[in-house]
Design a protein around this nucleic acid. Structure first.
Lengths: 183, 183
DNA sequence: GACCCCTGCGTCAATCCGCCACAGGCGGCT
DNA sequence: AGCCGCCTGTGGCGGATTGACGCAGGGGTC
């Protein structure tokens, strides 16, 4: 056993936290905060069974690590994680060899499952148009996450008043701080 | 050239219209309204350079056509079109061999471009978090489209009051009034 | 200390929402 | 023909929500 995993993530808190939790699940975790570190790990390590890549590490694009990674460890399972994901980006990542693509916030269960499952044989009942409220709420959470919980900044990029964001957040004490399962 | 294209789409109006426009672009179009028809075309036709698959054709899943299609015509470029798409669905389609994945409504230019471009070398500046209002508006448009413009039904699945939807729609004469491009 | 930006909270007027109506259109049904 | 069901527009009203204030305090940086 002792699966080896590369974790590329530039958010310090998330990198440490997620890394610890993955170790508890039996992975040997190589934490990287930048593309450079990741490239070093890639050449120095003997084996790599999985990788979790943040799509946006500072100015670099985590996707660029996919090809060299697969070239050296063709059996490595790659999960791309991103703050704000899009369908075109997911397609691009998948075409370049990623096994799965997730948007933050994602629970550990989400992550492990995405890493292990084979997404292509998903039964996938796709057309369940979400309610406006759900859509809004999830988007708000994502943007908030994207700004490290900074309410003012999030409100600015959401195009709504800071006060309004505060009020909305207060109404849902659920799910924001505890990376719980949603959906 | 006379490229051959398979078009699988269960909405009658869209199938005819899109088919016509594709023919004007030099494609020889094989229109299919069901998986069965598509399977027939697949076995009878001599050549196939491209395919546009609706993900939801009645009860079937258009994705199931990807493998047989690629098995017979490995060079065929496959575009999956869907009413309401999701990232997991896009990943699944791509892993099964689709070249690209689009959500309706999509303009002809979108479609042609998605069919021809190589989505994996997308420059892809991904994190441009949209404003809440934009997100909402686009989602409303999509759901409306999904219900053929039926305001009451759309409001129901959006989880808001019909009156509210009406009022919101009235406030944006902007990008919605052109029945020009699709349908 | 002087800034600067953040967070939380209160207030108040303007706006929006949900819900009640109503009238009319369209299509299928007995 | 009626009747029924569902759709679309429109109006109005009470209550909720929003946006723009202000203010106190926390936490950085120069």
């Amino acid at each position: 056993m002792n699966q080896q995993l590369l974790l590329l993530e530039d958010d310090d808190a998330l990198r440490l936290h997620l890394g610890n939790r993955l170790m508890k699940h039996g992975y040997r975790v190589h934490r990287c905060a930048s593309m450079l570190q990741a490239a070093e790990v890639l050449t120095s390590v003997q084996q790599l069974d999985a990788a979790i890549l943040d799509q946006n590490v500072a100015e670099d694009n985590g996707l660029d690590l996919i090809e060299p990674l697969l070239q050296r460890f063709p059996a490595c399972r790659i999960l791309v994680l991103t703050g704000y994901g899009s369908i075109p980006a997911a397609v691009a990542a998948t075409r370049r060899g990623a096994h799965n693509y997730l948007t933050k916030p994602a629970s550990l269960t989400d992550i492990l499952q995405a890493l292990l499952e084979d997404p292509s044989n998903m039964p996938d009942l796709p057309d369940a148009p979400p309610s406006l409220e759900r859509l809004e709420w999830e988007h708000i959470q994502r943007v908030l996450e994207d700004h490290q919980g900074n309410v003012s900044a999030a409100a600015r990029t959401l195009g709504i008043h800071r006060r309004t964001l505060q009020r909305r957040l207060k109404k849902r004490p659920s799910a924001s701080e505890y990376h719980r399962d949603r959906r």
